[in-house]
């Protein structure tokens, strides 16, 4: 079971580049790419640092289950 994340969504929303996010959390920009691709599961420390940068709870960014796509989330909200 891998760790799923929404880093790319949050990053796009805040207009942050991978390099800027990497500098903010003290890692190589390539590591952000690995995280976004799901090729690397971060340590608790790194996950908390990333959540801190976005000012969001860590469980909004990382999950053991796949996140619903943006389209699914919007359509389900529209129905309710």
């Amino acid at each position: 079971m891998g760790v799923h994340n929404r880093i790319s969504v949050f990053r796009a929303e805040r207009g942050l580049s991978r390099k800027e996010l990497a500098e903010a959390v003290g890692v190589n920009p390539q590591t952000i790419g690995y995280l976004e691709r799901g090729d690397y599961a971060p340590s608790v420390e790194l996950a908390l640092k990333i959540a801190q940068v976005f000012g969001a709870p860590v469980e909004m960014l990382f999950s053991l289950k796949p996140f619903a796509s943006l389209a699914q989330t919007i359509s389900s909200k529209g129905e309710s």
Partner: peptide, 8 residues
Amino acid sequence: KLDERELA
């Protein structure tokens, strides 16, 4: 000088 992913 390496981050956690690079070290792993």
